[in-house]
Amino acid sequence: MNRKRSISEIVAVVMLIIVAISASILLYVWLNGLVGSVHYNDPSLYVKIEITSANITHKNNYIVYAYVQNLGSATSISSVAVLYYNNSLIFFNNTPSGNLNIPPKSIGLIYASNNTKVNISPGTPVIIEVITSNGVEATYQTNWP
């Protein structure tokens, strides 16, 4: 009688081990597929831009000029912002001009203007921010004219 009992206990333990291994394999396969699909479907992972140089000029209105280098896949510039050093907004332009569709491994000139009066002391540090249609941002620090 003890023999039958011990064999059934061994079978039960082996079955539990098989169920645990099967569940862990299924969980691994599911998570690997889920994380892989999220990772590869996000286009912003392939977009990388950098502002190589930028400045602001003032004649009748303020014009921001930025040379943007595309280090990733093809992208499009959607907006330009000028911020104080503490990230508060000076002005924003969601209709910039210039080379808005920058091919990979190339540089494009982007410019945006602002017609409103801005009271900022000349030489104040500001940040120029360029934003792509995917939401990828690049910043460049310069001084207000």
Rank of each mutant, 00 (worst) to 15 (best):
S113I: 07
F92E: 03
G36M: 15
S113N: 14
S22G: 09
F91N: 00
Y84M: 08
S73V: 15
E50W: 13
N94L: 04
Y65W: 12
M15V: 09
I10M: 10
G72A: 07
N93P: 03
L100F: 10
V11M: 09
S121T: 15
S133C: 03
I18D: 02
T75K: 14
E137M: 09
E129H: 01
D42N: 14
T139Y: 13
G98M: 02
G123A: 08
I17G: 12
S79W: 06
V11W: 10
V11P: 01
F92Q: 03
T124A: 06
I25A: 03
A23N: 05
S6E: 13
Y84R: 04
L100I: 09
I49N: 04
N143F: 08
T124C: 06
V11T: 05
F92L: 09
E9R: 12
Y28P: 05
L89K: 04
L100Y: 09
V19A: 15
G135Y: 05
T75V: 10
K4N: 13
L71A: 05
L31P: 01
L89W: 06
A81H: 05
P122V: 12
S79I: 03
I51H: 07
I21W: 05
A23L: 10
N55G: 07
P145D: 00
Y85N: 10
L16T: 10
S88N: 06
S22N: 02
L83Y: 02
N2V: 11
V136M: 05
T139R: 14
Y62T: 01
T142F: 08
I107C: 11
L26Y: 11
K48V: 07
P103S: 13
A138G: 08
T132G: 03
G98P: 00
I77W: 08
P125L: 07
P145E: 00
N119W: 15
S76R: 14
T142V: 05
N143T: 08
I128Y: 04
F92M: 03
N87L: 05
I49G: 02
S76E: 11
Y40R: 15
I77V: 14
Y65A: 01
N2P: 11
G123C: 08
E50F: 13
K4A: 12
Y62P: 01
S78V: 06
V80W: 11
A54K: 09
I21D: 04
T139V: 09
G33F: 04
I102L: 08
I25G: 00
V82P: 00
K105G: 05
A66K: 01
G135T: 01
N134C: 03
S8W: 12
V126N: 08
L16S: 13
I7V: 12
N101T: 08
V136Q: 09
N61Q: 03
N101V: 04
T124R: 04
T142S: 05
N60D: 07
S53E: 11
N93C: 01
V136K: 12
N70K: 10
I18F: 11
Y85Q: 09
I17A: 13
M1F: 13
G108F: 15
P96G: 00
L89G: 01
S121W: 08
V64F: 05
L34H: 15
E50A: 10
N87A: 05
G72F: 14
W30R: 15
S22Y: 06
